[in-house]
Nucleic acid binder design. Structure first.
Lengths: 191, 191
DNA sequence: GTCTATAGGATGATAGAC
DNA sequence: GTCTATCATCCTATAGAC
């Protein structure tokens, strides 16, 4: 892997673990096995490197979701698959994590990257929900847009509650609960 | 207000805005109008001060929730009131914010404070949901525990999505969506 | 491309005077 | 109780040699 690649990947991990403010160029260099000069040769500084790392995390979120939402099967089945797909719950969401930091939210590029990922996710969920509604898998009166927001929020909030608890239990219970409210028997599905 | 009071309140605000890592003793002192010596006279250091501030935020969360959940009216009405109560959505949740920081999660006292607030909230929501289920306000088959987790997660996730978007819209849509899934006409209620 | 040297400021305290 | 002085370390670069 190239030095630039290792720097981006190290930044991605550190942002995930410690957030933007808690991630120093020094720590990035050490994890990447690169010197100061090397880092500043490839990137103008911490903000540019962080943006590259966040773009990668946002792309990953999208790919992970699309693997289920765009896969085979009915709408309910695909949404269930996505909700129950394997996650490192206690690490939190690498994208949602960024939304807490004022330096990230205050930067147009980073902010747009994070928000863009969530806008896409909500839109994609809404499409699948609408497809299921039209196909009779969900009630005819289903509010696809509101329900998509609920699902995205349950995932993000589930991460928060799980980290607070030091256990994946709140995440899993919230995911099970939302499937229940959608009328999908959560016991009847496999990840 | 006493100096110790001002220090705690300043810490509370700074933790809310910038998180634990992003909050320095120096910034706390300046906001509180206190000197270094004064701060270290009243508190042993940043961790002790932060713990006092977090306990206060956790207590506030509890009081805000109980004002609605323990108020008059039916179960659905009280839960709706809590969900639609006025919030500074874009500031995020002062308690949920803390769950992201590894230094907070790694400290037994702080971690227990944050988790305790969410455990209490979920338990309280479950009680009210169960009350409503027995009273016929909700379906007899309602999973009160799972639904309580959904509601807590929607609030926390709503904050995350709203901060990412720079707008309260995702929060409001998720809250409206969950009321809809609960069979409560969200248009029929007032904050 | 990568290295070392250097820098001004912040961080999180401690010591001791008042 | 509050103040100032001091401290070792980290932060985020920049400069210039190799």
């Amino acid at each position: 892997m190239s030095t630039a690649e290792r720097l981006i990947e190290s930044t991605r991990e550190l942002l995930w673990e410690r957030g933007y403010t808690g991630t120093s160029p020094r720590a990035i260099q050490q994890r990447a096995g690169a010197g100061q000069g090397s880092m500043y040769h490839h990137f103008s500084g911490k903000p540019e490197l962080a943006l590259a790392a966040m773009r990668r995390s946002a792309e990953q979120l999208r790919a992970d979701a699309e693997a289920w939402l765009g896969g085979p099967g009915g709408a309910a089945e695909r949404i269930t698959g996505y909700l129950l797909s394997e996650r490192e719950v206690l690490r939190g969401c690498p994208v949602g994590r960024m939304a807490q930091d004022p330096e990230v939210v205050g930067d147009p590029g980073m902010s747009e990257t994070v928000d863009g990922a969530f806008r896409w996710l909500r839109g994609r969920l809404e499409e699948v929900l609408e497809e299921g509604r039209r196909g009779g898998e969900f009630p005819a009166g289903l509010d696809a847009s509101g329900t998509a927001a609920v699902i995205a929020a349950v995932l993000q909030g589930g991460y928060v509650l799980a980290r607070a608890a030091g256990s994946a239990e709140p995440f899993e219970r919230a995911v099970g609960g939302v499937l229940d409210l959608l009328g999908i028997p959560s016991a009847a599905v496999a990840a």
